[in-house]
Design a protein around this nucleic acid. Structure first.
Lengths: 354, 354
DNA sequence: GCATTTTTTGTAATCGATTACATTTATTCG
DNA sequence: CGAATAAATGTAATCGATTACAAAAAATGC
C-alpha cells in the first residue's frame, strides 16, 4: 500500500514554477504505460475495468491535471474560438456574446474575446492570431476589413460573420434583414402621420448603416414622401453622436416631427437632446430606434425599436462555426433571422395609462 | 532565383486541414538551420545582418506564421489570461474589462473571458482551467468560492481579485473602500435631512454587499438615526430586484423618504418602481446608487451615485497580475482606489435648471 | 488443449518551436 | 601572421500528450 503525501505532490518550487504532475507520473504509480493513462482519459471504453480503476485512483491521488498546452500541441487544436467585438462595453454585443458563450461552452470551447475598438487594423491583427493557431475558429461581430481579405481567409479557416455581412460573399453569416427592419420602422412613423422624418445613420462604410438607410429611403419612396437631405445625418452609433446630431436637427428652421435612429444608443441620445431643446417626445418629435437593448424599455419615454434576436444570433453563429470546425457541410451558409418592431412610448404608443 | 508560387504555399488540403508552412520550411529556403530562424524571430540582434535579411525574406515569401501552440508548448506559457466575470452583460464589468484588456494587450497578453453567470460551480471550473495551463494567470471579478480554496490556489498560480476581495487574505486585490463609499452616500442623504432611509442591499454572501450595508449602518449610527429593519431589503444587484423591492417599500404604511441602493442597476429599478407608485423622485423619495455606470447620467432623473474608477481598477489588476507572472515582488498586495460621490438629480441636486 | 479471434496494453514516433551546448567563422591584437 | 577572443550558426534534446502499430493477454470455438 503506497501512500503519496502532499509533500510528494507539491515538491520543488523552482524559480516560482510549480513542478506539475504529468501523465508519466500517473502511469508509474498505476504501473501501466503512458498510453493506457491517455486512453483512460479519452476512450475509457477501451481499457479493462480493473486497470481503469487503478489509473483513475492514481490520477486522483496525484491530483493530476492534463496539460492542455501539450494536448493542444499534439492535436493541433486549441478548443477555443475568437470573437471579435467592435466595443465590449456595448450592451448589444454583450448579449450576442452570451449566446455564443453558451453554445461554445456546451461544446467544450473556450471563448477568447477580442476587442477591436472600432479599429480596422486591430481586426487584421486578429486574423493573424487565427493564422497562428491561437484559436480554432472565429466569429466576427464587426467586419470592416476588405472583402477579398476576409474571403480568402475564410477559405482556409473557420469564420462566421454575425450581424455584419459582406455583400455577395459566401462567408457563413447570421443576421437579420436590416433593410426590411429599417423600412418597417420608418413605415410605422409614416403610418402615424409623420411626413418630415429624419434618419440618424451609422457610419457609411459599414454595410448595416447603408442597409438601414436604404430601408428608410424605401419606406419614404413607397409612400411618396420627399426626403430632405438635411434630415439624414451620419453618426457612429454612439449615444454622443445621437445627442449631437439631434441638437443640429432641433436647430433647423423646420425640424423633423419624427426621427428614425439606426440604433438605440443614438436614439436615446437623440431623445435626450430633443428634451433639452424643449421638444416633447413623442408629442413633438417621435423617435424609433434599432436593436432593442436593455435600457430601451427602461428609459423614459420607453423606446420604440426594431428588436434583433440577439441571443439567437449568437447561438446560430456558434453553430455555423462548430460545423465548419468539424468539417461538416453547411446546408445554409446565410442565415437570416426575424426581427420585430416593438412599440413603446417614444412614438406615441401607450401600453398603460399613467 | 527561386520563386514560390501560391500553389506551393497553400498545398495539400488533407481532411480539410491546411498544411501550414513551418519553421523548417523557412530554414530550408533561407539555407540556414532551424535555430537561426528562431533567433531571427526572438533575438534578431544575435544574427548577422545579412543572414537575418535572407531569413526575413524567406518568411515573407512563404508567408510563414509561427505556430503559437508549438511555441506555447515549448515555453509552457500561453500568453493569455483568464478573466472571470459574474455577468458579461453588466455594464460595470465591461468597463473594468476594458481596462484589463488594454494593459494586457500592451504586454502581449490575450484575454480569455469567462462568464460565471453568478454560479459558484462555474468559478471552480475556471480554477481548473488555470491548473490545466489554459492561461498563465487569472483575474477574478467575482469570488464566491471558499476562501481556503482561492488562497491555496493563489499560492501556486498568479491570481488577482478585483472589486471583490476576501477578508484578511493575502491574495493580491484591487478595490475601493466599499464601507466608506456607502457611508458617504448614506451621509449625503442624511445631510439632506432624510431620516427614514432604506437600503437595497446585494446578496449577503458577497462581501461587497456586506460592506455597503455596513457603511449604511455606520452612517445611520453616527447620526443617531434608527434603522427600521424593514427598510433593509436584500436584492441581487439586478434591475428587476431594485424594481420589486421598491414596490414593496412603497407599499409600506410609512415608506422611506430616501433609498440607498447597493448598485446603480437596482437604483434605477427602484426609481422606476417609485414613479409607478406615484412617488416623485427626488421630491418624495431621494435615491442614491453605487458604481456610476453609463446610463446613470443619462437616465432621468440622473442618478446620484458612488463612482468607482472602473478603468483604473482593471488596469491596476492587470498590473498586479503581470508582476506575478513575471515573478516580481509585489510591494503592495492590496490596492485601494479612490471612489467619489457624484451628485445628480435623483437626490435633489440640479446642475442646471430645466 | 490448441488455434483463432478479440481485447488489452505497451513501444516509440510524432507534433513545431526553443535553447543548451558544440562547432564554425569572423575579428582583434600583439 | 597566428593565437586568442568574440560572434554567428548548427546540432540535437526537449516540452507532454496522443496514437499507429506491435505485442501480449484473454476469450472463444472446435
Amino acid at each position: 500500500m503506497k501512500t503519496i503525501t502532499r509533500i510528494d505532490q507539491i515538491f520543488l518550487i523552482t524559480r516560482g514554477i510549480k513542478k506539475m504532475v504529468k501523465m508519466s507520473d500517473v502511469a508509474k504509480l498505476a504501473e501501466v504505460s503512458n498510453a493506457t493513462v491517455s486512453r483512460v482519459l479519452s476512450s475509457p471504453e477501451n481499457v479493462r475495468e480493473e486497470t481503469r480503476k487503478r489509473v483513475l485512483e492514481s490520477i486522483k491521488e496525484l491530483n493530476y491535471q492534463p496539460n492542455t498546452i501539450a494536448r493542444s500541441f499534439r492535436k493541433m487544436e486549441t478548443k477555443s474560438i475568437l470573437v471579435i467585438v467592435p466595443d465590449v462595453t456595448n450592451q448589444f454585443f454583450s448579449e450576442v456574446l452570451r449566446g455564443i458563450e453558451q453554445k461554445a461552452g456546451e461544446n467544450g470551447y473556450q471563448v477568447l474575446l477580442g476587442n477591436s475598438n472600432n479599429d480596422v487594423e486591430k481586426e487584421y491583427d486578429f486574423l493573424n492570431q487565427l493564422r497562428q493557431r491561437q484559436a480554432d475558429g472565429m466569429i466576427l461581430l464587426t467586419a470592416r476589413m476588405k472583402q477579398e481579405v476576409i474571403e480568402e481567409f475564410s477559405e482556409d479557416f473557420p469564420v462566421v460573420l454575425a450581424c455584419e455581412y459582406k455583400e455577395g460573399s459566401s462567408i457563413p453569416t447570421v443576421s437579420i434583414d436590416n433593410i426590411s427592419g429599417a423600412r418597417k420602422a420608418t413605415e410605422h412613423l409614416i403610418n402615424l402621420g409623420h411626413k418630415r422624418i429624419a434618419h440618424l445613420s451609422g457610419p457609411m462604410e459599414v454595410i448595416l448603416s447603408r442597409d438601414r438607410l436604404k430601408g428608410y429611403h424605401q419606406a419614404m419612396l413607397r409612400n411618396e414622401l420627399e426626403t430632405d437631405s438635411v434630415l439624414v445625418q451620419e453618426g457612429d452609433y454612439s449615444y454622443e453622436a445621437g445627442y449631437n446630431l439631434m441638437n443640429k436637427l432641433c436647430a433647423l428652421e423646420e425640424p423633423p416631427t419624427a426621427v428614425f435612429a439606426a440604433n438605440d444608443e443614438m436614439a436615446i441620445g437623440a431623445i435626450k437632446a430633443a428634451k433639452e431643446n424643449f421638444f416633447r417626445v413623442p408629442e413633438d418629435i417621435a423617435v424609433v430606434g434599432f436593436d432593442d437593448i436593455k435600457i430601451s424599455s427602461i428609459f423614459e419615454p420607453s423606446l420604440t425599436t426594431v428588436s434583433q434576436p440577439k441571443l439567437e444570433i449568437g447561438e446560430k453563429a456558434m453553430e455555423l462555426l462548430l460545423k465548419q470546425m468539424n468539417f461538416e457541410e453547411l446546408n445554409r451558409k446565410q442565415i437570416v433571422l426575424e426581427d420585430k418592431l416593438i412599440l413603446r412610448q417614444s412614438c406615441g404608443f401607450n401600453k398603460k395609462k399613467k
